[in-house]
Simulated assay, not measured.
Amino acid sequence: MTQQAAALQTYNNELVKCIEDLCSKRDELNRQIKQEEEEKERLQHDISVLSEKLNRVNESLAQRQAARATFNRTIKETEAAYSKILESSQSLLSVLKQEAGNLSRATEPRRKEH
């Protein structure tokens, strides 16, 4: 019977050691889970902050793009109007030169032809 008792004691010791090993592994796993949950919270917070920044940048970008479109339209319209002014100025100058020439001829003394 002492041999059986010794075997039982050995089994009991091994069983206790296995249970302690499992508890130790569980504790390590709990530590890793807690660490990853904290990392997950940090990442979710970072995502939230970055999403807010992204929204602000998108809004600002949309406003700037609209302003740029307004600038482009204004520049295009102004250049077209300026081009028309240049054409009108050229036409006016041409007419003025022609009229000045006509006036000069009209005011010149007439030469007598022999």
Rank of each mutant, 00 (worst) to 15 (best):
R56V: 12
E79S: 03
E59V: 14
A106H: 08
R31N: 09
L22H: 01
L92M: 15
N72H: 07
N102W: 12
A67M: 13
E77L: 09
R110H: 13
L96K: 12
Q3F: 01
N12M: 13
N13Q: 14
L86P: 00
K53F: 03
A67H: 11
Q9P: 01
L92N: 14
E37V: 11
L50W: 01
V16I: 14
T78L: 09
R31C: 04
T2M: 07
T70E: 00
E20D: 06
K40T: 09
L54Q: 05
L96V: 05
S24V: 06
Q35L: 11
H114R: 15
E41I: 13
S104G: 03
G101L: 04
T10H: 14
E59A: 13
S89C: 12
E52R: 13
Y82I: 15
K112G: 04
A69I: 06
Q9V: 01
S88I: 14
L96N: 09
Q98Y: 03
R110C: 10
R68I: 11
V57M: 06
G101N: 05
L50I: 02
S88V: 15
A66M: 10
F71D: 02
S94R: 06
S89Q: 13
C23L: 11
I85A: 09
A5N: 08
I33G: 02
N30Q: 12
V16M: 12
H114E: 15
T10F: 11
K76P: 00
V95A: 14
E87P: 00
E14C: 05
V57T: 12
R110W: 14
P109H: 07
Q4A: 01
V57S: 06
T74K: 06
Q32Y: 03
V95T: 15
Q9H: 05
N55V: 09
Q35T: 09
L103A: 09
A106P: 00
T78D: 04
D21C: 03
F71A: 01
A7L: 15
K34E: 10
K40S: 05
E36I: 10
E113T: 03
K112N: 10
V95H: 10
